[in-house]
């Protein structure tokens, strides 16, 4: 990784994006002090990141990091105690979470008896048990069915509301749009794009306007003057506006031609499109 500079603001949800092998996990491992950077430094609330911050951070790796032969509850107690919980506190906390995720009945099962998605839930509990201020999740939804993914998603939102900062590494863009406020896009060890999701979308927008209309045969005979039509169907039209044109210009012509308008939206690029465009631009 080179010249990576990030500024993570408290209580925000960040998406860390990048193609395979871009350096996402390496960056995370530096933040979690698994690796140490050759150069540069990481500051936590203004102080160099050190061992004392370990309890402020919760990290959920992409692959399962659980003892296969250990029982669920036993394993969670072990992790909690390493985090400095007393036995009673650990038990109470774990009961709370097992209940919350409706998996109390698995307490005495070993990890290897569980499915991948179930293991993911256990891993999630292990990550959030100590109520970290900074939560780093590497592909938290992989292997989860839609129902369980939704449960975890709600938990992430809840933790966010309670004040946690979340860094969320993934290459599943639909999750990013739903969850993240800000994104960092990494490719080949460098940050190639960063900022608020909506702002970035504005930057990458192609001035496409979609107008939904009532089915009307006369559309085919209408001339739209200097408006550039990208796509035309009996029920909707897509225009690409030039710098000088405004959406109202479209409306004027449509009204003049007596075409019933049902709706009108600006087509913003999806994070997925931005991702592909930005990655291709740098490769």
């Amino acid at each position: 990784m080179q010249d990576v500079s990030l500024n993570i603001q408290p209580n925000k949800i960040y998406g860390l994006l990048g193609p395979n092998g871009a350096g996402k996990t390496t960056l995370i491992r530096n933040i979690t002090r698994i690796f140490f950077p050759d150069q540069g430094q990481i500051l936590y609330k203004g102080l160099p990141l050190s061992e004392q911050h370990q309890n402020c951070i919760g990290y959920m790796p992409e692959e399962r990091g659980l003892y296969k032969k250990m029982k669920v509850r036993e394993q969670l107690v072990y992790f909690a105690r390493l985090r400095g919980f007393s036995k009673q506190d650990a038990e109470a906390k774990i009961s709370f979470w097992l209940k919350k995720l409706a998996i109390e009945s698995w307490s005495n099962k070993t990890i290897e008896e569980l499915s991948k998605g179930m293991q993911q839930k256990i891993q999630f509990i292990a990550t959030v048990l100590h109520e970290p201020e900074l939560l780093i999740l590497d592909e938290p939804f992989s292997g989860l069915d839609p129902v369980n993914a939704e449960i975890i998603k709600q938990e992430i939102f809840e933790l966010h509301q309670k004040g946690a900062t979340i860094i969320f590494s993934t290459h599943r863009m639909e999750n990013v749009e739903e969850i993240c406020e800000d994104i960092f896009l990494i490719n080949k060890g460098k940050i190639i794009l960063e900022g608020n999701v909506q702002t970035i979308k504005q930057q990458y927008k192609k001035h496409l306007i979609r107008v939904d209309i009532l089915e009307n045969a006369s559309v085919n005979h209408t001339t739209f003057g200097n408006l550039n039509i990208v796509e035309q169907t009996p029920t909707y039209l897509i225009f690409k506006l030039s710098e000088q044109q405004k959406p109202n210009d479209i409306l004027k012509i449509l009204i003049q031609n007596n075409i019933e308008i049902v709706g009108m939206t600006e087509i913003l690029p999806s994070v997925n499109e931005i991702f592909i465009q930005a990655v291709n631009a740098t490769s």
Partner: peptide, 12 residues
């Protein structure tokens, strides 16, 4: 099993 990755964030 990548257990170390989880553990190393809490213990040396």
């Amino acid at each position: 099993n990548r257990i170390v990755e989880v553990l190393v964030t809490t213990v040396r």
